[in-house]
């Protein structure tokens, strides 16, 4: 086996895209996930139904199929997105469905008395959700959410299938021109190991910072 030092900077060129896609889809996922969770818990029946159908579809089908639907399928309906837009959108819609379920679980784990207490102070329902329920749900959901972040970091690698040159795309391109494909992917694997390690550490730091006594179990993921 032999390696080239120049592979490192070449693969590193893909890092910004990998990070951009990860952060963007997580952001979409949080906003949409919270809305879906609220819709599922507090919404009227028809809205609850819509949320459930959405969540079931995106959790029941492969992410790669979803990506192709957005990138190759939507043009059939007259919606054409760039590869980057497709990647961010597909990953974002997907993680939203999972995050919605985590948030839903967390919202329901906040004890019912908290809602009563908030309403007894004269808070409206939206106020009670915003000031009493959500701040607690966010903390309860943090470990699951950290996990989700790591998963999306790894899943972002699928965007190379729609021609994007993220870390994975760069590795694929490099390996096509070099007979040492195995070694190239070993280096790519090393990049992902470091990325995941750093992300895990930072997320753990975040969890410790926002931890409040009596709210949620201490972080448990590796």
């Amino acid at each position: 086996m032999s390696f080239e030092w120049e592979w490192f900077p070449k693969l590193a060129e893909g890092l910004p895209l990998t990070l951009q896609i990860t952060f963007s889809c997580i952001a979409i996922g949080i906003v949409l996930g919270v809305l879906l969770a609220l819709g599922r818990v507090y919404g009227p029946r028809f809205l609850r139904g819509i949320c459930i159908v959405y969540i079931q579809f995106f959790r029941g089908t492969p992410l790669l199929v979803q990506l192709f639907i957005v990138y190759n399928g939507l043009p059939n309906l007259g919606i054409t997105l760039t590869a980057l837009q497709s990647g961010i959108l597909a990953l974002g819609l997907n993680t939203a469905a999972y995050q919605a379920e985590y948030f839903r679980g967390a919202i329901q784990a906040v004890r019912g008395g908290q809602m009563l207490a908030a309403r007894s102070l004269g808070m409206s329902l939206p106020q009670a959700i915003r000031y009493a329920i959500l701040p607690q749900a966010f903390r309860l959901v943090l470990p699951a959410w950290s996990n989700e972040f790591i998963l999306m970091l790894k899943y972002s690698s699928i965007v190379f299938t729609v021609t994007l040159l993220d870390l994975m795309g760069k590795a694929k391109r490099l390996s096509a021109r070099d007979s040492r494909s195995f070694e190239v992917f070993l280096v790519a694997a090393l990049f992902y190991l470091v990325l995941v390690f750093v992300a895990t550490m930072l997320l753990r730091l975040l969890e410790n910072r926002v931890r409040i006594p009596g709210l949620g179990a201490p972080s448990q993921h590796r």
Binding site: R111, G113, L116, A117, A118, P135, Q136, I212, L215
Partner: peptide, 9 residues
Amino acid sequence: FQSFNLFAH
């Protein structure tokens, strides 16, 4: 309330 219901956060 009987069970206090202080906001835990």
